[in-house]
Nucleic acid binder design. Structure first.
Length: 313
DNA sequence: AATATTTTCAACCGCGGACCA
DNA sequence: ATGGTCCGCGGTTGAAAATAT
């Protein structure tokens, strides 16, 4: 009997993660920790549904009293009800996304020369045991190091006349024959290797802007800065909407002014509304949850705006 | 400016090992 | 010992971004 797949793949989403999915996963793990990856997709998002029903009741009540002021909130809640189901991802995919991209202790930005040298030394000792190698670099993932090895370091070594497999100087005449023999000995399929030349982008360094963008996005989604700002008296809506924009720019480079304004309006309304309807003892938690929801909502609106922009441009 | 080519890296796949009943 | 389940690892893929023509 064959091994069963890690999950029922029917109806599960694959491919790149959306902001909303990231948000659900981060929210769940920060609140509940990691227990069983298989159950995380089902549970992520569910914790917010209780608050959703509260919010819906509040907003409906408010809509009756003050229709104009609360219409945006009501819209948000309606959209949220569609988006707050569990994650349509398998546990494996969640684990990968968390480990390689979302976890808060990840170090961002290009690997330094010193790190590269250390990778080369460790690879000479350990071979392609990427997780072992990565364990020497806190904040770096095995995937990142593996990718860096395959795209940069291998080429650099070859350029320097060093065989990346053996870490010994290349004997050019024997090199091709030996690697083919090795492949035959190991009974591995022979692939047609692309001719590898020094990368045209070898000198290209990730711009500070890109790094800041990633760092800002991480800060925003993982350290709950936005919530703390909202809770403090000097909450700056402009600053917050800029954070949203910066984060969204990591995914999509263009945003409409309307979309930006939409975020501001949702935020101000949300803060006003939720503050007036929640008991003081629960205020902070509820407000944080509300901000969670509003953030998802704002992102949904942005994505809808982008979709329309693309459709009609 | 448009198109082609190359590079990067996030995400997927399948396997092996650990653990449990 | 056996079979089922889950997690983690390493190889690979392919879309998006960067660069060249």
């Amino acid at each position: 009997m064959g091994r069963q797949p890690c999950c029922d793949r029917v109806g599960l989403k694959r491919g790149p993660w959306t902001i909303e999915e990231d948000h659900k996963l981060v929210h769940f793990i920060l609140n509940n920790g990691i227990q069983c990856w298989r159950t995380i997709p089902k549970l992520a998002g569910v914790g917010q549904t209780l608050f959703l029903s509260q919010a819906r009741n509040n907003s409906i009540r408010q809509a009756i009293l003050e229709p104009k002021a609360s219409i945006n909130i009501l819209n948000c809640v309606t959209i949220l009800s569609k988006s707050l189901s569990g994650l349509q991802r398998c546990g494996k995919s969640c684990r990968l996304r968390w480990i390689n991209y979302l976890r808060p202790d990840l170090k961002r930005g290009a690997l330094s020369e010193a790190e590269e040298d250390q990778i080369i030394q460790l690879h000479a000792r350990l071979g392609n045991r990427w997780s072992k190698i990565a364990s020497h670099f806190p904040g770096r993932t095995d995937n990142e190091i593996k990718n860096h090895w395959n795209t940069r370091i291998k080429k650099k070594l070859k350029q320097a006349g060093i065989d990346p497999l053996t870490h010994k100087p290349i004997d050019h005449e024997k090199y091709q024959q030996e690697s083919d023999d090795t492949i035959m000995e190991l009974n591995l399929p022979i692939h047609h290797h692309k001719t590898e030349t020094l990368s045209r982008t070898e000198t290209y360094d990730k711009s500070n802007e890109a790094e800041n963008c990633a760092a800002n996005a991480t800060d925003f989604s993982l350290s709950n800065n936005a919530y703390h700002n909202v809770l403090s008296e000097n909450f700056d809506v402009d600053l917050w909407s800029k954070s949203c924009k910066t984060m969204s720019n990591c995914y999509s480079p263009t945003l409409s002014l309307e979309a930006e304004e939409s975020i501001k309006f949702s935020t101000v309304s949300a803060v006003t509304e939720s503050s007036s309807n929640i008991e003081p003892a629960e205020e902070q938690d509820s407000l944080q949850q509300w901000m969670d929801s509003i953030f998802s909502c704002a992102v949904n609106q942005l994505e809808e705006d982008l979709f329309l922009l693309r459709k009609y441009n």
